[in-house]
């Protein structure tokens, strides 16, 4: 494991603070004041250094739940249904194991594993390739680790789509506020509380920033019956950290160095999760 100087100092600092007890509380207060000021003066907001998600495939008992999860996200975020795969917009969707983890499959895998629908979404990478290539900073990484899109700045060059190794981004090839040939709107029921997008910009999962700011967990997490777990990677006591510390998890294409922050518990039957954590 490699650790750069800053990370080392941070950990060293944290250990000292833990030792000093009282000062820890003080530091914590100062830190949260700082964080809040950086985002918005909002006391409800959930806070983190790096939001992350664990997707526990073993906990999806039915395809129904998976559909509910996807629909919840797409409905509240006004994700249009264009009706053809070419112009498709999706924030969260499923692929089989072989497509979610290309190169990892083998032909002796159980049928169940081979066909299980894995949920995919933006990984809110620690070192995101999409942010690196964007020529306008229209896609950027927030202080809490969420990789965001500024729809009013995006020029629609699609460099970020070429760069994202996870196919997490969709481009509005059609006007999402428009209608199909039969006059049906692409957005079936518009959620007035969330903005619709314009034609010609790129969009993707936002880790539900609008909900986090209200103190709510992401919509997909809420609908998942415990299969999706959301939390701060930087907090050793967070639910995600507890799972990562006790269960074997994998990420998509970690070898590319983007440091994805969505982890998968692949499942099967015999994996161990400490029950009281979940």
């Amino acid at each position: 494991m490699s650790m750069n100087r800053r990370e080392f100092l941070k950990i060293a600092g944290i250990s000292t603070v833990v030792g000093l007890g009282g000062t820890a509380a003080f530091t914590k207060i100062r830190e949260s004041a700082l964080e809040a000021a950086q985002i918005a003066p909002n006391t409800l907001a959930l806070k983190a250094k790096q939001w992350a998600m664990v997707i526990d495939m073993g906990k999806f008992k039915s395809e129904e739940t998976i559909k509910k999860v996807i629909n919840a996200c797409h409905r509240i975020h006004n994700v249009p249904d264009i009706g053809n795969p070419k112009d498709e917009i999706k924030w969260i969707w499923t692929e089989t194991y072989g497509h979610a983890f290309p190169g990892q499959e083998h032909k002796y895998m159980s049928e169940d594993m081979m066909h299980k629908p894995f949920l995919l979404l933006c990984n809110h990478c620690t070192n995101p390739a999409c942010v690196r290539v964007c020529p306008t900073k229209a896609t950027f990484k927030r202080k809490d680790g969420i990789v965001m899109q500024d729809m009013h700045r995006c020029i629609g060059c699609r460099f970020c789509m070429a760069a994202c190794p996870f196919g997490a981004r969709s481009f509005n090839y059609r006007d999402p506020r428009g209608k199909d040939a039969n006059g049906n709107p692409f957005i079936k029921e518009e959620n007035k509380e969330y903005p619709t997008r314009m034609i010609g910009v790129v969009e993707k999962c936002t880790f539900c920033v609008e909900r986090i700011e209200k103190g709510l967990k992401p919509a997909c997490v809420e609908e998942s019956n415990g299969a999706l777990v959301f939390g701060d990677l930087d907090d050793p006591n967070s639910e995600v950290r507890k799972i990562l510390g006790s269960t074997y998890t994998v990420r998509r294409k970690p070898e590319l160095g983007t440091e994805p922050n969505v982890y998968y518990v692949i499942g099967g039957n015999g994996y161990a999760i400490v029950p009281e954590l979940l």
């Binding site: 020529p135 306008t136 700045r153 020029i155 629609g156 699609r158 481009f171 509005n172 010609g200 910009v201």
Partner: peptide
């Protein structure tokens, strides 16, 4: 012609 929002080209 490849840009989705060509009017914003100056953003670069």
């Amino acid at each position: 012609v490849d840009m989705g929002q060509p009017m914003r080209i100056m953003n670069v």
